[in-house]
Design a protein around this nucleic acid. Structure first.
Length: 434
RNA sequence: GCCCGGGUGGUGUAGUGGCCCAUCAUACGACCCUGUCACGGUCGUGACGCGGGUUCAAAUCCCGCCUCGGGCGCCA
């Protein structure tokens, strides 16, 4: 739209045309105010009924809330106006009238349940707090990309329609691909590893992953955004360094560039960029620390996976981001390399926020024979992964990498109660639309 | 997949067998009001998820279904 002025840029003394949504109309009798909202904020339009054209007043005050209008008029300085300026309208055009019964209240006077909000996400996103989450999410993704680039990664995109899953046939959404069985990919794991042996050496991908697990929790999605990293010629320790740098870059960018959004979310004072290095706690030490908290009814023993309760106990104990390293080989996937000195111990690591797991990674098994052995040990048929394994025969360097849950990063960063808050249109067990 | 708890006007809620042709707020409609900024005031409109059962009597108790949320497992 030509000549449109954002409400935030309306300077006193100018004649402007603003466009946006009718946030509210306050009719005091002889005088009335229409609050117009656009992506930059709000501005007040003043109607002094005795001094203005009846038709103009009729149009301006006759519209329902959330209708889309353009207003042309003079901007005047006015201390009594909410933003210090107001517009005296000369003309008003209603571009799209809104129905009177709104499915939720964008002005936020009345709360709506998450389910109602997601059913009407467009209206929900007219609320400042909700919009702020997605402005921050965009900033996080921008910063993460920039950080990857600065450590020499090439951005890649791998297929989401695949013939076999990363770790077998379970937990995958089956689809039909021209009459053949296919699946939605649950992870770019195998593809990004294939790029390690290519000329690219060091890659990252930000893209959707699909998991068909029928869980029902505030921290799981069936379609999520995975932030993946993989690099040749590094070990798991260097992968953790990269992980830490990417997460820190995201926090720093939000602190630097999203002050207004943090203010809107009420986080301006408490938002903190993680200062210290993330502690690297071995699995063995983690078990000991969890047992020492006394939070668990039953003591953990070596070989146990960490339950949600155990993760939480350790998170409270540590108090910030941290790594859990050197997991038992048995509870990590086949593509994770074991320690040479101790095959019971893997190079796998998780990066944790006190509330939940954010990252899973490790050094990869790059030796063809060992890799095929690993497939067999996990009960998988190496033949169906031949497209993957055969590239390990032609010069696959040692490498390491990780995957970070994008929504979990945003969720923990902003202390959101539900991961669905961090996705525009979440896919969960019961929700398939919008 | 197992377990638990919900579904009341457009939205959010109160209501544990009769006091309920259902509370309050907001929205919506009408009227009053010349500085609101959650404007205020008066009046009005509008709802018990669906089906069956128990009972003299059901929003309330029971059963089935649908639907939503949460816990666990598993994971990012």
């Amino acid at each position: 739209m030509r000549n449109r002025t954002y409400t935030a840029d309306a300077e006193p003394g100018r004649t402007v045309t603003v466009a946006g949504w009718v946030h509210e109309i306050r009719d005091l009798g002889g005088i009335a105010f229409l609050i117009l909202r656009d992506k930059t904020g709000r501005i007040q339009i003043k109607f002094e009924k005795d001094e203005m054209d009846d038709e103009l007043v009729e149009t301006g005050l006759g519209v329902h809330r959330e209708s889309v209008v353009t207003v042309t008029g003079d901007v005047e300085e006015e201390p009594r106006a909410p933003t210090g300026v107001e517009i005296v309208p000369e003309s008003i055009e209603v571009l799209a009238e809104a129905a009177p019964d709104l499915p939720l209240d964008p002005s936020g006077k009345v709360d709506a349940e998450l389910s109602t909000r997601l059913d009407n996400r467009t209206l929900d996103l007219r609320k400042e707090e909700v919009k702020a989450i997605f402005e921050i999410r965009a900033e996080v993704l921008r910063a993460v990309r920039e950080q990857f680039r600065s450590i020499g990664c090439t951005e890649i995109n791998t297929p989401k329609i695949v013939a076999t899953g990363t770790e077998g046939g379970t937990e995958l959404f089956p689809i039909t691909y021209f009459g053949r069985e296919a699946f939605m990919n649950q992870s770019p794991q195998l593809f990004k590893q294939l790029m390690i042996g290519s000329g690219l050496e060091r890659v990252f991908e930000i893209g959707p992953i699909f998991r068909a697990e029928e869980h029902n929790t505030p921290r799981h999605l069936n379609e999520a955004t995975s932030i993946d990293f993989e690099s040749a010629f590094i070990d798991q320790r260097e992968a953790m360094d990269a992980c830490e740098s990417v997460v820190r870059a995201a926090y720093e960018a939000v602190a630097d560039n999203c002050a207004e959004e943090l203010e809107t979310l009420g986080l301006a004072d408490e938002f903190e960029v993680p200062e210290d290095d993330f502690p690297r706690i071995s699995y063995e030490e983690a078990i000991e620390r969890i047992n020492a908290t006394g939070e668990l009814d039953e003591q953990l023993v070596w070989g146990d996976d960490l339950s949600t309760e155990a993760e939480r106990a350790l998170g409270d104990d540590v108090g910030g981001h941290y790594f859990i390293t050197d997991w038992p080989s048995e509870i990590k996937p086949f593509y994770i390399k074991d320690h040479d000195a101790d095959p019971q111990l893997s190079t796998g690591f998780d990066m944790m926020h006190p509330r939940m797991e954010l990252v899973s990674g490790g050094q990869r098994e790059h030796r063809y024979e060992k890799l095929v052995e690993g497939f067999e040990q996990q009960g998988l048929d190496p033949d169906s992964f031949e497209y993957y394994t055969k590239m390990f025969k032609y010069g696959m360097p040692p490498h390491a990498g990780w995957g970070l849950g994008g929504e979990r990063l945003v969720m923990t960063m902003l202390d959101l109660p539900n991961i669905r808050e961090a996705v525009l249109f979440p896919r969960d067990r019961q929700r398939l639309s919008p």
